[in-house]
Amino acid sequence: MDLSRIDRRYIYLVIAIAIAVPLLLKVQLPVSVGPEVQKVYDEIDSLQSRDCVMISFDFEASSVAEIKPVAEAVIRHAFEKNLRIVGLALFSEGTAIGYNIISSLAEEYGKKYGEDYIYLGFRPQYVSAILGMGENIDQVYPLDYLNDDWKDFPPFSDVENYHDISLVVSIADGSLPTYWVEYAGSRYGQKIAAGITAVMATSYYPYTASGQLVGIIGGLKGAAEYENLLGYTGGGHRGMLAQSSGHLAIIALVILANVAALRKKR
């Protein structure tokens, strides 16, 4: 049998089985926590009750499956610590998704809009938005996502700029955390953490090593690690067995492809 001529649809089928079957099994793999995720957890955990964290939903709809468990884990932690959350989006598609995530979790934790969290919505031109918020958030976002004047909410009326924000968490599927580092971190000394898709992780390790990012939560695995620290089972944990079996299937296919290539050479 010539392995190099195998129909690609068989490969898709193998991957589909490798993903679907583990999801049907209620088995969970142990997850060890890496230092990057631990740093983000420790940073949020060290904040005082009613401190303000800014969570920026900087992703597009196509990444929701991977990024939503990350966002949920961070927001759960913030609500459990009774922190005030300022939500916003610098990618248009993340706007409604971010609002849905934050408001549904707020309902679960009994948190109220305007008291425990606000959602500012979307602004285009992220560089201008990030820089502008360093001077005055109200200038960049005069109204919130619901078109209310968010300064009228007493718990948030003292939030003027990054001085009043203890930590910015950029939940992103692209290069937005880099802009947060460059414009909010370098210029205003703002502490920044990133929740990112796994594909972006290698790009951000140098920023954690240099201390420009507090830490990173990378993809579904990062979410599972964070869920481990919080002691609950969420989207990250649920996907770990399927993730591992999918990886094993791909490793097997890579080996098979190399064997086929070697046989062909001879």
Partner: peptide
């Protein structure tokens, strides 16, 4: 190699998300 590994992980995560949607939200098998 590390970047490729993370890319595979990322794409598999997206597929898991869709399969979870089909099996849990649509078919209610899990």
């Amino acid at each position: 190699g590390a970047t490729f590994g993370y890319t595979v992980m990322s794409r598999i995560s997206l597929l898991i998300g869709r399969f979870e949607f089909i099996l849990r939200d649509a078919l209610r098998v899990i």
